[in-house]
Amino acid sequence: MASIKRIQKELAECTTSSPAGISVTLPDDSDLHRWHVTLQGPSNTPYAGGAFGLVVSLPPDYPFKPPTVTFATRIYHPNVTNDSQGNICLGVLKHENWKPSTKLVGVLEAVRGLLAEPNPDDPLEARIADEYRQDRAGWEKTAKQYVARYAKGEITWPEKEEGKKA
């Protein structure tokens, strides 16, 4: 597969000169298509001090199709589903916006950017988005509670689903 070379290069970039607050590991060295990423909550946000697990899985057609990125750690955020799925609403990850030249570093930075600056106009959790807009203090409080409860210890990575093997 032609994409191996590309993924190897991207992985090397992410592991050798990893961008601020982001670290990447492979759960299975033989599978380049599944990445475990640890995000440090950006400072000056309610997420500061927390460590958030992201599962990145690359489709066989990568980079012609976008990767899927989900939170493994529960997080209280307008653009992330408030459940064990941890789906993210991020423009660049949508099929129609994805470009083959988009790099994963950029995607991961965009996810971290979303933690620093939630986008309540395009929410996955409408209720949290409303709270973010109208009761910022209340939102911060709950977000911090989530960090204390879920994002302080060791990250529990989800089992790899069968059939998703690239």
Binding site: A2, S3, P63, P100, S101
Partner: peptide, 11 residues
């Protein structure tokens, strides 16, 4: 083009 590297597949 000599020395060209494709940014998508890195070939």
């Amino acid at each position: 083009i000599p020395g060209f590297v494709c940014d998508i597949c890195c070939e």
